[in-house]
Lab assay of single mutants.
Amino acid sequence: GKMTGIVKWFNADKGFGFITPDDGSKDVFVHFSAIQNDGYKSSDEGQKVSFTIESGAKGPAAGNVTSL
């Protein structure tokens, strides 16, 4: 299901970062391709987002990331 969290950091040059879930669980990796914004796929530190957890090649990753 959908979770909410805060972007801990995001490196636009490398195209990835981490989200800290609101439920206190482990930080989740986020790749720019998962960000659902139109246009520039980046996110700012401290941005509140909703997301799903997908199982990626390197473990859990955020999917369907949407700014709230």
Rank of each mutant, 00 (worst) to 15 (best):
V7E: 03
A61K: 15
V30R: 00
T4C: 12
Y40C: 14
G63N: 11
M3E: 04
E45N: 13
S67D: 07
N11T: 03
K8I: 07
S25N: 06
F18N: 01
G59D: 03
G39T: 09
I53Y: 10
Q36S: 11
G24Y: 03
I19P: 01
K48H: 14
D38H: 12
N37T: 12
A12P: 12
S43M: 15
N64V: 06
S55G: 09
P21R: 01
I6V: 13
D27H: 04
P21T: 05
G46R: 08
G5T: 01
A12E: 09
N64E: 07
M3L: 11
V49M: 03
I6N: 05
V30I: 09
N64R: 07
G1K: 14
T4G: 02
K41V: 12
T52K: 02
N37D: 13
Y40M: 11
A61G: 04
G39Q: 10
K41L: 14
F10I: 03
V49P: 02
K41I: 13
G1F: 08
F51E: 02
S55L: 14
A61Y: 15
G39F: 13
F29D: 03
M3F: 10
S25Q: 06
F16G: 00
K14Q: 08
S67C: 13
V65H: 01
K48Q: 07
G24E: 02
T20E: 06
I6W: 09
G46E: 05
F51V: 03
S33Y: 06
V7S: 00
E45G: 14
K48I: 08
V7F: 07
S43I: 15
A12Y: 14
K26L: 09
A12D: 08
F10K: 00
G17W: 03
S50L: 08
H31G: 04
F16L: 03
K8G: 04
K2Q: 09
I53M: 09
G59C: 07
G24P: 01
P21E: 01
P60F: 10
F16P: 00
E54M: 12
D44H: 15
I35E: 03
G46S: 07
K14L: 14
K8Q: 03
K26W: 06
A34H: 06
K2N: 08
F51W: 01
S67A: 13
P60L: 12
D22E: 05
Y40L: 12
S25H: 06
D38S: 13
V65C: 03
T66K: 12
D44N: 15
I35M: 13
I19A: 00
G17Y: 07
P21V: 04
F10Y: 09
D27K: 02
D13S: 13
Q47G: 08
L68F: 08
D13A: 14
G15I: 05
F18M: 07
A34M: 06
K14V: 08
K41S: 12
I53S: 03
G56K: 07
N11A: 06
V49A: 00
F16E: 02
D44L: 15
K48E: 07
G17Q: 00
G15R: 04
F29E: 02
G15A: 03
N37L: 12
K48N: 05
A34T: 07
E45P: 15
V49S: 00
M3H: 10
A57I: 13
G46Q: 07
T66H: 10
G5I: 04
K2R: 13
V7L: 13
Q36V: 13
S42C: 14
I19D: 00
D13W: 11
G63K: 15
G5C: 06
N64S: 08
A34W: 05
D13P: 04
E54H: 13
G24R: 03
V28N: 00
S67G: 09
I6C: 12
G59E: 02
G17N: 01
E45M: 14
K2S: 08
V49Q: 00
E54R: 09
A12H: 14
G17M: 06
T20L: 09
V28Y: 04
V30C: 08
F18W: 10
G24F: 03
M3G: 03
G59P: 05
S43A: 15
G46Y: 09
F16A: 00
S50M: 10
G59Y: 07
K48Y: 10
G39N: 10
D23E: 03
G1S: 11
K58M: 11
N37E: 11
K26G: 12
E54T: 12
D23K: 05
S43Q: 10
V7Q: 01
P60A: 09
G17A: 04
G17E: 01
D13Q: 13
K2P: 09
A57D: 10
T52E: 07
A57F: 12
G46V: 08
F51Q: 02
D22A: 06
N11V: 02
K8C: 09
Q47R: 11
A62K: 00
A61L: 13
D22G: 04
A62M: 02
F16Q: 00
G63S: 13
K41E: 09
A61T: 14
F18L: 05
S42Y: 13
E54K: 09
E54C: 12
K41W: 15
D44F: 15
S55P: 12
K8R: 11
E54A: 08
T52Y: 09
T52L: 07
F18E: 01
G17V: 05
N11C: 11
F10S: 00
D13L: 13
T20R: 12
I6D: 02
V49I: 05
T52H: 07
G63V: 14
V7M: 12
S33Q: 06
K2W: 10
Q47S: 12
D13F: 11
I19G: 00
G59I: 04
Y40K: 10
T52M: 07
G24H: 06
A62F: 02
T20G: 03
A57M: 11
F29S: 01
S50I: 09
D22Y: 05
S55M: 15
F32L: 12
S50W: 08
N64A: 07
D27I: 05
F32C: 13
A62Q: 02
D44C: 15
S33H: 06
G56E: 07
V49C: 05
V28K: 00
I35H: 03
I19H: 01
F51M: 02
H31K: 03
N11W: 09
T20D: 02
T66I: 13
W9V: 02
T20S: 10
G59A: 04
P21G: 01
K14Y: 10
G15E: 02
L68C: 09
P21C: 06
G56Y: 08
K41N: 11
P60H: 07
I19N: 00
K58V: 07
M3R: 10
E45I: 15
D13R: 12
I19Q: 00
A12K: 15
H31Y: 08
D23Q: 04
A12L: 10
D27C: 08
T52R: 05
G46P: 09
T4P: 01
K48C: 13
N37W: 14
P21A: 03
F16C: 04
K2C: 13
D27L: 06
W9E: 03
A34S: 10
D22F: 06
V65Q: 01
T4D: 01
S42E: 08
V28R: 00
N64I: 06
K26I: 09
Q47T: 13
V65E: 01
W9R: 01
F18S: 01
P21F: 05
Q47F: 10
V28S: 00
K8H: 09
P60S: 07
A12F: 12
D13V: 14
V30T: 01
